[in-house]
Amino acid sequence: MKKFTLGSILLTSLILLAACGGGGESSVAANASGSKFPEKSIEIIVPYAAGGGTDTLARSFADLAKDNIGEPVTVVNKAGGGGAIGMQNGLSAKADGYTVSMVTVELLTLPHSGLAQFTHKDFLPVALLNEDAAAITVKADAPWNTIEEFIEAAKKEKLKVGNSGTGAIWHLAAAAFEKETGTTLNHIPFEGAAPATTALLGGHIDAVSVSPAEVATLVESGDFKVLAVMAEERVESLPEVPTLKERGIDLSIGTWRGLAVPKDTPADVVEKLEESFGETVQSEEFKATLDKLKLGYRYENGEGFTTLLEEQDKLFGDLIPSLNLN
């Protein structure tokens, strides 16, 4: 009987411990001392796992930002919920500017899919760091050499287009492409862009709708060709590939990454962050790092970033409900 008692005491304490773990991270209203900001290290919350594109971007940014802002800048990964967990975490942190969130296009897509409790209006944008357009990429030996030929073929048969996950940005891009061109595609979801491109290389699908960066190595090796990019302007790394707009299809869609703070953050703190982060983003070192990572460069300050958020929020607000996800 003694054994049983010991075991059950331990059990109870474990349950208690586990229960305590749940609600420890509620937010406290901000009372920042803006004048001397920053006085300690700044933390960037990345809503994805270590090692992905967003994480690599955040880490290289943090490395350069610390010199400009004069305090250490650290990166913490809080993955899960397709990005919702990390962004929610950043939102419920103290609004004093010491916790900055890495926000991505999912800030707009998650709320419209009913997968997040927040909207972009809960954040104050600080700086846009990057933008990558979607692209239509096929195997080099595919019978289509132009986007028109591809659309023509897609009208005759259901082509299989791989994306990085249902409801993820590349799926939305392919779905928007479908709507704009009047085609019907067979969307095949993969767990990330890499498995999708592998399946294309193996000939299991007909095309992928991921970013040019994600197919860059296979385009260089001559295995893939990019038919069109869904950007406003041609992509630097692929100067010969047309945009959809050039071909008369009014669609520009893609992912972007930026930094934001909770909306209650004091104005002088936000100003300081905007100034210092903006300097870092516009530095040659940062541009060179993005180039190395094959990520697209686009800087906007808080105001420009807000405009982008509002424009795209409309796009996704129309697009997502029409897809009948779930």
Partner: peptide
């Protein structure tokens, strides 16, 4: 995942 959630799950 830098969160207590997984600690609870493990327990």
């Amino acid at each position: 995942n830098n969160s207590l959630w997984n600690v609870g799950v493990m327990m």
